[in-house]
Nucleic acid binder design. Structure first.
Lengths: 208, 208
DNA sequence: CGATTAATATATCGATCGCTATTAAACGCT
DNA sequence: AGCGTTTAATAGCGATCGATATATTAATCG
C-alpha cells in the first residue's frame, strides 16, 4: 500500500495532519470556546466548507486534534509508566516530562488536557464531559502503575493508590495552571521535587 | 449614615449585591466566556440597559462579582493564615477549607479563581491577566505565611518558601479541576492529607 | 398637580458565532 | 476535447454576541 492509486477530482490543498496540528495549537492556546471557526480557517489557509468537509464539525475537529496532539505529547511519559522503571522512577520521569512539556518556549503554555474546558457554556457540556473523561483516564493510568507497584513491593500493601494517583493527577493539573500563568520549566521542576517528597513507597531502582 | 436620604427618581428593582451574587454564581459555573449577557440579565430578572447602568460592562461585572464572592469564600482560610495557628496547622486548615468550599453540593464545582479564564480568546487576554494576578496573590499570601514560619522556627532557615508556596498553590488549583470533574469533599480531603505529607517543617502546635 | 430626576423596558445596533447551499475550478479517464 | 468526479471558494444562512439609542415609567420635590 505504498503506491496510492491516483485519485480523481480536484486535489486537496490542506494536508489532514497539518490541519490537525494547526487546530491543536490554536485550541491548546485559546481553548475550545476561545477558538473560532474563523480563527481555524484563517490559520489553515482554507475556507469554512473545506474545513467542514474534512473534519465534520468544530466538536469533531477538537476531538481529532486532541487525539493527534496528545498522542505525540504524552507518548514518552506513558511509555515510562509501562516500562521497567521502578514506580518512583517512572513517576519522577512522568512529572518531569510534564513540567518540560507544558512550559516549552515555542509551544502554548500548559497542558492541552489538564486545563481545557473546565468551565464552559451549557451548550458545550458534552465537550466538557469528554475532557473530564480524558483527565480521568490519565489518572487511571497512573493508578494502575501504582497498583503494579504494590505487587512488585515498591508500595506497601494497603496503600490507597486511588487517592495517591488522584493526588499526582491534581498536581499535574495544578502545574498546568501555573504554566499558563507563566511558570518556567525550572520553577515547575522544583514543584515536582516537592511533590515527589510525598511518595510513600520505595525510591530505589528496580533490581538494586 | 443610618438614615439614607430619600432618593429621587424611579427606584432600582435589582439590589446591587443580589446582582453580584447571581453573576458570581453564573460565572463560577460557566466561566467568563461561557456566561453571556443574556444569561446574566435573565437570571437577574432585568434588561440589558439596567445591567450596564449598574455594572458598566461584562468585564467590570465579572471583576466586581469575583471580588464579592472571593471575599466571602476565602475569608476563613485567609484569617487562618494570619492567625496564631502554627504554619502547619494554618496550612492544614487552609487546604481542608478549600476542599470543602469547592465541593459543596449546592454550589458550583471548583474554585472560582483557580480554574477561571486559564485559556481564552485573544480579545479576553486582559481578563486572563487579571485572573493570573489573583492566583499569584493567593500564592504570595501562602508564601508570606511560610516566611513567617521560618522566623518562628516552624520551618528550617533556607527553606525555599517560594517553591513550597507554589507547590501548595498548584495543588489547590489541581484540586479545583478535580472538583469540577466531580470529586466529592471526602475524596478531596484524602488528597489534602497526602499533600500535607510533603510539609518539610514542624507539625507541632504553637507553644507546644 | 406639573416639574424634575432616575431607573426601566423596547427595540435594536454592527459584529461575530457555527455552519451550509450554491457555484466555480482542478483533476483522471475516455 | 469532453465528461464525470472531487474539492475549493463565494456568499450568506439564522442565531447570538456585547452593548446602546430612544422612549417610557415611577419615584420625589415644589
Amino acid at each position: 500500500m505504498v503506491e496510492p492509486p491516483k485519485k480523481r477530482g480536484r486535489p486537496r490543498t490542506l494536508d489532514r495532519n497539518v490541519g490537525l496540528d494547526v487546530a491543536a495549537r490554536l485550541f491548546w492556546e485559546h481553548g475550545y470556546e476561545g477558538t473560532s471557526i474563523a480563527d481555524l480557517t484563517a490559520a489553515m489557509g482554507v475556507t469554512p466548507p473545506s474545513l467542514y468537509a474534512t473534519f465534520g464539525s468544530k466538536q469533531e475537529l477538537y476531538c481529532k486534534a486532541l487525539d493527534h496532539a496528545v498522542e505525540r505529547e504524552s507518548k514518552a511519559r506513558m511509555d515510562a509508566l509501562n516500562s521497567g522503571l521502578s514506580a518512583y522512577e517512572a513517576l519522577s520521569f512522568y512529572l518531569h516530562d510534564v513540567a518540560t512539556g507544558i512550559s516549552r518556549p515555542d509551544d502554548p503554555r500548559g497542558c492541552i488536557v489538564s486545563t481545557a474546558v473546565v468551565q464552559c457554556a451549557a451548550e458545550n457540556e458534552p465537550v466538557a464531559k469528554s475532557m473530564t473523561a480524558r483527565r480521568e483516564a490519565a489518572i487511571k493510568a497512573i493508578r494502575e502503575r501504582f497498583d503494579r507497584a504494590i505487587s512488585e513491593g515498591d508500595l506497601a500493601v494497603g496503600t490507597d493508590t486511588e487517592s495517591l494517583a488522584r493526588f499526582y493527577g491534581a498536581f499535574v493539573q495544578g502545574m498546568s495552571v501555573q504554566a499558563c500563568d507563566g511558570a518556567c520549566t525550572q520553577r515547575l521542576k522544583r514543584l515536582v521535587d516537592i511533590a515527589l517528597s510525598a511518595w510513600p513507597g520505595k525510591r530505589s531502582k528496580n533490581g538494586r
